[in-house]
């Protein structure tokens, strides 16, 4: 009995450890002001400021555009690659998989950032400071998650048999992807897409290195607002938390569904 109470107490503490910090910006964002222990008043003004202030609004649009593009590029390069790696037999496939897993570890965001700046700051490759460079950087940070989840999906189905059946019925490569392969690995693709999108929306480190005036994303605005206006900063933080929460609910839903299948 005593053990049970202790166990529940630890569970509550573990939940609070995550929930208390992430609820701070959310509570802050709905309060008129918060100086003492308890927040005062209720308002939606700080959210309205994201849309009303030109700088914040354009940052929101840039962030959504960058995250969508990075997700799509990650998918475009990772899906065919996972398809091939799944079919590769022997060492080369494993080596490639390990290489992609270790890539984000040996080349962390700060290295990706400095390498991109050095490589692409002089004509004819002067991409630095452009929105394109931000999208490339986010893709580099995100694609391993897309690749890993898509490949894991490929491993749960017998793609080769399915493809041979489709081929014998006269399906072309495009038709096979469209009607056989993608529907079968859609869970992995969705989980990967949610991760890449959430990572991209919150990314600050590389973005602050490679972004020029055109690549000002929401986290870059947040960085300035933390020093200037905590209230607007709280609304931006809360918004970024909502995106993470949504993607995490989506992932939990998909994984629990695939477990039951």
């Amino acid at each position: 009995m005593k053990k049970k109470i202790l166990e529940n107490l630890v569970i509550i503490l573990l939940v609070l450890y995550i929930v208390v910090p992430i609820s701070m910006p959310i509570i802050f964002s709905f309060s008129k002001f918060w100086q003492g222990i308890l927040p005062q008043g209720f308002t939606l003004e700080w959210y309205a400021q994201i849309i009303k202030r030109q700088k914040n609004y354009s940052a929101l649009m840039v962030s959504l555009f960058v995250a969508t593009s990075a997700t799509l590029i990650s998918l475009t390069i990772s899906l065919p690659a996972a398809y091939v790696v799944n079919r590769l037999k022997g060492r080369f496939g494993e080596a490639l998989k390990n290489f992609i897993n270790i890539l984000p570890m040996i080349f962390p965001p700060v290295i990706v950032g400095s390498a991109l700046i050095l490589a692409f700051s002089k004509p004819p490759l002067a991409f630095n400071g452009s929105l394109f460079m931000v999208i490339v950087a986010h893709t580099l940070l995100g694609f391993p998650y897309m690749f890993r989840n898509t490949l894991a999906s490929f491993r749960t189905i017998d793609e080769i048999t399915l493809s041979e059946a489709a081929q014998s019925l006269g399906a072309s490569l495009v038709e096979r992807f469209r009607y056989v392969i993608i529907p079968n690995v859609i869970h992995g693709i969705t989980v990967g897409a949610l991760l890449v999108f959430a990572i991209s929306i919150g990314e600050f480190e590389v973005t602050s290195m490679v972004a020029g005036f055109t690549g000002q994303t929401l986290p870059l605005q947040l960085f300035q607002q933390i020093r200037n206006d905590m209230r607007v900063a709280s609304a931006i933080s809360a918004f970024l938390i909502y995106i993470s929460l949504l993607s995490f609910i989506g992932i939990t839903y998909i994984t629990s569904k695939t477990r039951k299948d």
Binding site: V20, P21, I22, M24, P25, F28, W34, L195, A198, I199, I201, G202, E203, F204, E205, P219, L222, F223, I226, M230, A233, S234, S237, L240, I241, S244, S247, F248
Partner: peptide
């Protein structure tokens, strides 16, 4: 998937 900035902000408030 949480942004490092958001976590910094959360801990500043807390």
């Amino acid at each position: 998937t949480l942004s490092g900035l958001v976590v910094a902000f959360a801990f500043i408030v807390l």
